[in-house]
Design a protein around this nucleic acid. Sequence first.
DNA 1: CTTTACGCCTGACGGC
DNA 2: TGCCGTCAGGCGTAAA
Length: 271
Amino acid sequence: MPELPEVETIRRGIEPFIVNNRVCRVLLRTPKLRWPVPADLDRRLGGQVVQRVERRAKYLLLRTAVGTLLIHLGMSGYLRTLQGDQPPGKHDHADILFDDGFCLRLNDARRFGALLWLEGDPQRHPLLAGLGPEPLSAELSGEVLFKKGRGRRLAVKSFIMDSRIVVGVGNIYASEALFVAGIDPSRAAGRISRQRYRRLAAAIREVLQRAIAAGGTTLRDFSDQQGRPGYFAQQLQVYGRAGEACTVCGQPIVKIILGQRASYFCSRCQN
DNA sequence: CTTTACGCCTGACGGC
DNA sequence: TGCCGTCAGGCGTAAA
């Protein structure tokens, strides 16, 4: 389930292989993922040179002179990199083949992902236009969170998972960041001080940054295959650890449901 | 305006 | 062994 760190790791992994590389063709095996995949994608992307590989939130953007291929991996999606042709396996929905024999293959068992063709400025596309700040940029600050949180009764965990507030904070890292910041996930977003939001903004950045650093080592080799993203589970402090001792105080980690999502926290360290 | 519920989809897992 | 129900989860959309 790729969260932002996984997507960024994938971006960095594929970038050197496809920037300045020309797409020779696109092979679609599945007509619809989350939305219908443009049937004429081969005609649009074929022959185009990938100029840049960007990421906005959890969307990957492969930019060409005439348009942008948007890729979202949903929950179960991953990209593999292949050389030459290899027989497709189960849930291998699309291949992007390049002139030099390089192939980017999209696999997504649950098909919650997306493959779309965007023309014009991608930032104007409805999927991207309303997004909040990137968590790793200076645009995210405690002040921004504090201001957006005014008057809201929503649980802060659900609040930071709202992509209009800040992008790329998925279920796992939301719990982790709130633990680092010492904030109870169920606390209303409007009832958190500026000071504590500053700590939260820093915690979000730190947790994501650390996961990217870990991904850079575990997913380094993209030349073979397996851009299969992991959870970086080895360094999670609360997520999925209900009943286990808090790494700081030893209290058992508690699991609660917020906004229909599993949430984990330490009732002693977080308030 | 905010908040909540649901649907999309498959694989893993537990109970029988 | 197999069948069935439940859960997981990003994110858009509908409904309250």
